[in-house]
Design a protein around this nucleic acid. Structure first.
Length: 455
RNA sequence: UCCUCUGUAGCUCAGCGGUAGAGCGGGUGGCUGUUAACCACUAGGUCGUUGGUUCGAAUCCAACCGGAGGAGCCA
């Protein structure tokens, strides 16, 4: 008999009759003549209640000794439950114990701290919370592909090992080869020159946009910053669309549409898991997601943002000053207090942005944009790219960069240049936003952060 | 890298200078179809590590290690 998933059983309109389910015991309650086993196989948040009669083969020897964490295969009839709290339950006719769980199995029915669960990353997917997080993660990955593919975008795999520095994107991990304990550098370098793990696929993405028009990347990204915050990881996933024949306005429209699409998809397809987050993680979650789905984002220029912050009369720890980056506290004030919704800030001073962003006609600002959301801050960062070869060359020089290192990038402007724009969306930050989970380490299966690469 | 907090049983925590505690989880027994079931009994700990102060340290001090929060940087 083949295995039926528990989600399928619980969503049945009529009884599927005699079937087999397999999964892990969440808890067991014993009575004199029978036991209730809560079985979970990860296919959904809910457990299937198994009624195990004392007359079953192996009841005294095995079944009554089952503890939380044990794995079993259960054959039985799906019947309407006599008790409250669930529609269907399974009257077992045979239970095979696949694996017992030692008495120190760390997961219990009671609440655990996120820090503790992080320390048992190999077992935490078996908890309600992490099962839900990773089902939502999977769904959001699918939704990202759907969003772009439905609009004719081409999925491009940009390299993970790269010799080019997407300047301004952060510190990099060096890729080296080893001869025993000896690291080979210089002339012995495997690629003939220094190479790194990618911090962004943008520059390579631009080359494909300047051929296939609308493209996106979706893959792992690495940053070597020694950041100790709930929003940073050394390895994370990023989505980077790049669109030819596109200006900043449409770039902002796309970013907003994408965030709304993903939120809407989660509300529709992950309702049970989101309801769980709404109950145990973040009481206002569902309401906030519906708000984000239904209302337009606020849109303000950097100059307006600085004026709003200055006029707010708030005593910020860091003063608001034109020409400086907005601090975390400033971003939070704008999105959480001033607008109470996601906002897109655009047209930043050129001095604080990288060389590839398109210079505006005022000569002082560039066509950059960030989407800020309540509770997390920056979730999207993007820009229109500088397509004018002379301006790009001047920017390279201003930033102290050598054209030789970027010759292929400059070539895009020499051979049929087009206006184009794109952005990067941090996948984990999106997941934090959609699930309400407060720490980036809890939306990645096995988080890598400074000083920690366990599992 | 900087600032702050924190480390006691499998888990959540109490104890804060005088013999190491509770709840949950585990074991044993009981029990009306239970829902974080319930009742009784029971096993379980080099109090992060090292050093110091003291008659005596989980408790006070120092260093180190781990964890968390915030800042900067960024997605």
């Amino acid at each position: 008999m083949s295995r039926t998933s528990i989600v399928k059983v619980l969503k049945s309109e009529s009884s599927p009759g005699e079937i087999q389910v397999k999964g892990w015991v969440r808890t067991k309650r014993d009575s004199k003549a029978f036991s209730f086993i809560e079985l979970n196989d990860g296919s959904c948040l809910a457990n299937l209640q198994i009624v195990a009669d004392a007359t079953l083969d192996g009841y005294e020897e095995n079944i009554v000794h089952l503890t939380t964490g044990a794995s079993v295969a259960v054959t039985g009839n799906v019947v309407e439950s006599q008790g409250k709290g669930q529609r269907w339950e399974m009257q077992a006719t045979a239970i095979e114990v696949l694996g017992t769980a030692d008495e120190d199995f760390p997961l219990q029915k009671k609440g655990h701290s996120m820090e503790f669960l992080r320390s048992i990353a190999h077992l935490r997917p078996r908890s309600n919370l992490f099962g839900a997080v990773f089902r939502v993660r999977s769904r959001m990955a699918l939704a990202i592909h759907q969003f772009f593919q439905d609009q004719g975008f081409v999925y491009v795999h940009t390299p993970i090992i790269t010799a080019s520095d997407c300047e301004g994107a952060g510190e990099m991990f060096r890729v080296v080869t080893m001869n025993g304990d000896e690291i080979k550098l210089g002339d012995d370098e495997f690629f003939g020159k220094p190479s790194y793990l990618t911090v962004s696929g943008q520059l390579e993405g631009e080359t494909f946009a300047c051929a296939l028009s609308d493209i996106y990347t979706f893959g792992p990204t690495f940053r070597a910053e020694n950041s100790h915050t709930s929003r940073h990881a050394s390895e994370f996933w990023m989505i980077e669309p790049e669109m030819a024949f596109c200006d900043l306005e449409r770039d902002m429209d796309m970013a907003e549409a994408m965030v709304k699409y993903l939120v809407s998809d989660a509300l529709e397809n992950c309702a049970d898991d989101l309801a769980f987050f709404g109950k145990f993680v973040d009481k206002g979650l569902i309401e906030r997601l519906e708000f984000v789905r239904d209302r337009p984002f606020a849109r303000v220029s950097y100059t307006e943002a600085v004026e709003l912050l200055t006029a707010s009369g708030q005593g910020f720890e860091y003063p608001v000053e034109y020409g400086h980056n907005l601090q975390s506290e400033h971003e939070r004030y704008l999105t959480e207090t001033q607008f109470k919704c996601p906002i897109t800030v655009y047209n930043y001073p050129a001095d604080i942005k990288p060389f590839y962003m398109r210079k505006n006609d005022d000569g002082k600002t560039v066509a950059a944009m960030d989407v800020l959301v309540p509770g997390i801050g920056e979730i999207v960062g993007g820009s229109q790219r500088e397509e004018r070869v002379d301006v790009l060359r001047a920017n390279l020089e201003e930033h102290g960069l050598s054209e030789e290192d970027y010759d292929w990038y400059v070539d895009l402007r020499r051979f049929g240049t087009v206006p184009h724009a794109g952005f990067g969306l941090g996948f984990e930050r999106l997941l934090m936003f959609v699930t309400g989970v407060q720490n980036i380490r809890d939306v990645i299966p096995f988080p890598r952060t400074p000083g920690s690469a366990d599992f």
